[in-house]
Every structure is written in structure tokens, then in C-alpha cells.
Design a protein around this nucleic acid. Structure first.
Lengths: 338, 338
DNA sequence: TTGAAAGCGCTAACAC
DNA sequence: GTGTTAGCGCTTTCAA
């Protein structure tokens, strides 16, 4: 590996100047900078991140903690964050908590502590108090995406508004018997969002002067399979079948569409279905949905961290921008009986 | 941050001894080791990975390069690798090439070179010659998973055997008009496996004395949507409709099942469908498939790297173990007309 | 604007 | 088995 001193010699300057020219910290005359960059390029020099980090205290590395990796939302957020980090010259170190237990503990008690990251992004994570404490003890910037972490700045769509919008879309079409498939209590512990989505649904019905009825709610686990089961329950009822279903995730909505088909119902003629996410499969199934943009959320998280890490370097990101969402109407929703 | 010298003072030993006791390198008396560990725990000491890496040349970090993250196979491999790395005290730094172009170049020309990783795992990546050259220039262990990299040890299932097995399953059930949905040429450039899967299919038919016919092959892009389109083409044919479809991925197989349903065909009565992967949705759709175990592949890649990084520490992993696969029969395959 | 030199916190010879 | 000490390769005062 070629080191900084070789570059210095080649460029006829000191190592200090090379460091300044390449990192952009401190002033170097344009001429020198050019010489140094040329020398570095010719020699194929790349800084040793360890030496640089040790000397400067900057790691150029962000830790990203996720509870799962093989779910659309999580991997999309990571993808968005990765791309943004790359552009800023940062690495992304991934900590996947799937499996829980020991792994989870060692991530918080060991891995995150070894001075390897400048900041942490926690995705849809419900953390214990001691975990939050450890994170704060790091003394490093921390931002959450998609899930509430007590005392931590979190990027998330307004779940109440999202589900209200979805429900209002159905109401506007003329539906009055609207079922909801949302998170069950177990899930709630980890995400909290199911509850909020339920609130929005209830608020919308309320606003339309429609009473809630318990048999129009089914809990499920945010998967296609879970949505399928829940929808079968709702649609199998011989009396007063709902004419529309609002599922708190696209995967559950897709499960609902499949359940409807298996019951011989035609979507949207017999039942309308709307989800939340704009999952990659939503388009294929013609699913109406409220899109959220997880990659944008990942990128935004990075932007905020960069602001904190390099104050003044970027335009200060508005710290309380709510994340955008958008109703996308496809072919799974229509007027009842239409 | 508490440093090694504080621990040394607290334990009444030198920093060298602390280093030895904590890292397990070099000999320390059991009594001393205990004292040191206790002191470290009390003080909440965790080594600075930078200082450690700089001094030792070991990064305790593996780079993982993936072309996509939000596909089941990739995220599963990463998950498996992550878990195995964690157990070995290693971090995982992720490089996602999605988007290609600039990002891709900077990963190879910058990020991987800054001495941050001890080794690299490349997942299903078709690399250019110059990229392979750069990787080799790192002088670090390198292992591929699921895709062929010229001159690099790669972990993969035997695609020919896999597709032969799938096809033979259909043949054994009595099918003779067996269609195949495989990769198209564009995809081939990146993966190569489609071709191999097609070979196995052809070999199996050949072995059964059944001639190939061009209209029984449809290219697709490994997604549900692609499989759906391809299957519509195959099953929509008014004459000599195939009685079975072997799709080179579960996602395409699921697309085929949905296409069959939309055409009014019943699976498996009118058409049998088999895929490859054992995707998380396979079970839900009752899909017969050849399972591969991506998490196991990720874990295996780590095992091999650990062997190379710490010779003698682990049992030498047999370097040429082919990755396992397994026929899983569910309800999407049956005797023709059954 | 540039150079000299003192560390950053740890590991690994080398001595004892 | 343990301590002493010289770096690892860079960044950053401080002086010039």
C-alpha cells in the first residue's frame, strides 16, 4: 500500500500538505492541490481510513441498525441511506438484529461502542430503555426512521393522516362498510404504527358519521399470509360483508386481494382494497395504496446526520419536515357494487 | 472514552497485558485475565477499533458487495453473513451497487481500497475485468456467493443439477409437455445462472427421450410480473398447452400460478408449476420448489473467510463443498390431468 | 500557504 | 507470564 509520505515526496510537499489537499480541510494553494491530486492518482493512493480516523476522530462511517433485512420497507430504507452515504464518502456498517437475543445484546454492548461509527440510523426499531441509553451514551448523532424511539428524532410519515386519507378515499367512493386490517398487539410492541393507523381509520369513519364496529377489524402481522387470513375472516361472513378493506400494509392488502379471489369475489366489483406502502408488488396487483418513499426516508436520515456532523457545510435540512406520502389510485378500488 | 491505560492501571498490569488478556492473543495467566476482564467491565472499556486495526493490520470487518438489496435472495445471504460475522466479532460493511454508474465505480476505486475490510464477499455479481483486478489488487481474501466471478472461489448451488431435479420431478409425475421460464439474455450478462438452469432442464428432457421445442421456452426477468407474462404466453396457446412449467425462480413460478388462475386454469389439475429458491412466499402459494438456503450460503462464505483469516483457528472448512439444495413438494405439482 | 513534529490508542517485538 | 517501547499512517496544532 502506498502511503501519504510517498505522495508527499512525489508532489514535492510535506505530508501535512498532502493531507490538507486531499481532505479539503485547511487551505492549500490551487497549484499545490493539483500537484498533490495528480501524484495521488498516479500512485493509486487512498487514505487508510484507520489511520485517518485515529488521528482525526472522524470515522466516515455510519451504523445502520435494522430489525429485519428481507422486508421491502427495511431494505429500501437501507438502500436509500447507502446511496446517500456513498455520495458523502461514508461507509455503511449494517447491524441486523434478526434473531434477537444474544446478537442483539452484543450489537448494543460491543459493536456500536468500538468507535467505528460517527452516527447511527435506527430503522423501525423499538428499543428498550437500556438500549436507548447506550445509544445516547455514545454521544453520537442518532436518528430513527419509521418507528418511534423515545427521546430520538425520528423520520416517519404521519400514520394517522395516511390512514385517514386511505379511509377517506373509500368513503368518497361511497363505501360505508369499511373493514380494517391492522397490527396485532404483539406487533404493536415493536412498531407502534399499527395503532396510529387504526386511529386514522377510526377518525375518518367518525368524521363521516359512521360508527365503528368491532367485527370490521382484524389483526394481522403485516405479511401477505396474515392479510389473507384476516381478509378471509372478514369476507367470509355471510351477513353484512364489508364492501371495502383498508389494510395497514400493501402486503396485507395483497393477501386480501388473493383471499377475495379465492372466495369468488371480484376486486373491485365486490370488494375494494387499499393498502399502505406502494410496495414493489402493488403495481402488479393493481393495488390502490398510500405510497411512502422509504428510500427517500433513508436518504433524508443521512442528510440530517450530515448536517449534524458537518455543521454549515450543507444547507441545514429543515429538521421537522414530515415525510411525504401520496394516494395512488389503481384498479383495486371503485364504487361499491360498481 | 476510557482507554486501555486506565484499564491497565485499574487491574494493576501493563497495557500490553490488557491487550493480550482481552484479545486472546498471547499468553496471560488465568488470574490476570480475570482481573483484567473485571476491570474492563467495570470501566465499560471497549477497544477502539481504529487504534487496534492500525496497530495490528486487522480490521475485524468484512465488506459485502451486492447488486440489489431488496430481493429475497440477496437480503437473505446478507442476513446469513451478518449473523455469522457477528458471532466472530466482525462488522459487516455493506456496498450496494444498485443504480450502477458512479456509485459502482467509486465503490471499487475508493471505498474498498481504504483499508477498512479484511476480506470481501461478492454476492451474485458479474464483475468487469477491471473490477476483479481491483479486488485482487487488494490482496485480501475474496469469496463470491451465487454468481460466477472469474478466478474467484464462488459458493453456489449446482444450477444444472437443480434444474434437472426440478424437471425430473415433473417427468416422474408423467408430464411430457414441460415448459421452462428462464432468464433472458440481458439478465444472463449479470448472472449466468439462467443458462445453467436451462441446461439442466434440457438435459433432463433429453434423458427422458423428449425433444426440445422452442415454443416451450419463455424468457423472463426473475420477477413475479415477468413470470406472469411469460406464463400467459405459454398457457394461452390454444393448442398443445404445456401441462407443467418449470420456472427458474420462485417469483416467476408464483407469477405463473397467478397467470394460470387468471386464465381459468386450476393448479395443479390443469398445470403443474415448480420453481427454485424456496422463497418466503412459496409456502403460502403451495409452491413446489427446489430449496436453496441463502442464509446458509452467507454463513458458509463467512466460515471460509474466517479460515483464511485465522488459519488453524477453526477446522478447515472443506473448500469445495457444493451448496445444498432440496426438492420440496407442495401442492402446485401433480400428475397431469390429475 | 506550508512544514515540523507531536500525538491518536493500541499491538507486537523484544526483553526480562 | 508480563513489562517496555517502538511504531501503525495519518491529522493537526504550532511556527515559520
Amino acid at each position: 500500500m502506498v502511503g501519504i509520505d510517498e505522495v508527499a515526496r512525489r508532489a514535492g510537499v510535506s505530508t501535512a500538505t498532502v493531507s490538507r489537499a486531499l481532505s479539503g480541510n485547511g487551505h492549500v494553494s490551487p497549484a499545490t492541490r493539483l500537484k498533490v491530486k495528480a501524484a495521488a492518482l498516479e500512485l493509486g493512493y487512498v487514505v487508510s481510513s484507520n489511520a485517518s480516523s485515529l488521528a482525526s476522530g472522524r470515522m466516515k462511517n455510519i451504523g445502520v441498525v435494522v430489525p429485519f433485512l428481507n422486508r421491502w420497507f427495511f431494505s429500501s430504507v437501507v438502500e436509500g441511506a447507502q446511496k446517500a452515504l456513498l455520495q458523502n464518502g461514508y461507509d455503511l456498517t449494517l447491524y441486523n438484529l434478526t434473531g434477537g437475543g444474544d446478537e442483539r445484546r452484543s450489537v448494543f454492548e460491543h459493536f456500536l461502542l468500538r468507535q467505528r461509527v460517527d452516527a447511527v440510523i435506527a430503522i423501525s426499531l423499538e428499543l428498550t430503555e437500556s438500549e436507548v441509553a447506550r445509544l445516547h451514551a455514545l454521544g453520537k448523532p442518532l436518528v430513527g426512521v419509521g418507528g418511534p424511539i423515545s427521546g430520538v428524532r425520528t423520520l416517519t410519515i404521519d400514520d394517522v393522516a395516511v390512514s385517514r386519507l386511505a379511509t377517506e378515499h373509500l368513503l368518497a367512493l361511497g363505501h360505508t362498510r369499511i373493514a380494517h386490517i391492522g397490527g396485532n398487539k404483539d406487533f404493536d410492541l415493536d412498531f407502534h404504527l399499527p395503532t396510529n393507523r387504526r386511529f386514522g381509520y377510526e377518525a375518518a369513519l367518525d368524521g363521516a358519521g359512521i360508527g365503528l364496529s368491532a367485527e370490521l377489524f382484524q389483526p394481522a402481522d403485516f405479511t401477505i399470509r396474515g392479510g389473507y387470513r384476516a381478509a378471509k375472516q372478514l369476507l367470509g361472513s355471510p351477513h353484512d360483508r364489508p364492501t371495502a378493506i383498508f389494510a395497514a400494509s400493501d402486503e396485507m392488502a395483497i393477501g386480501s386481494i388473493l383471499a377475495a379471489r379465492d372466495l369468488g369475489l371480484v376486486v373491485p366489483r365486490d370488494v375494494s382494497v387499499i393498502g399502505v406502502d406502494d410496495h414493489e408488488l402493488a403495481d402488479f396487483f393493481g393495488l390502490s395504496t398510500i405510497a411512502q418513499f422509504p428510500q427517500g426516508q433513508g436518504a433524508k436520515a443521512v442528510e440530517i446526520l450530515m448536517d449534524q456532523l458537518h455543521p454549515g457545510k450543507h444547507d441545514q435540512a429543515a429538521l421537522n419536515t414530515p415525510m411525504p406520502f401520496e394516494l395512488i389510485v389503481r384498479s383495486s378500488t371503485a364504487r361499491p357494487g360498481g
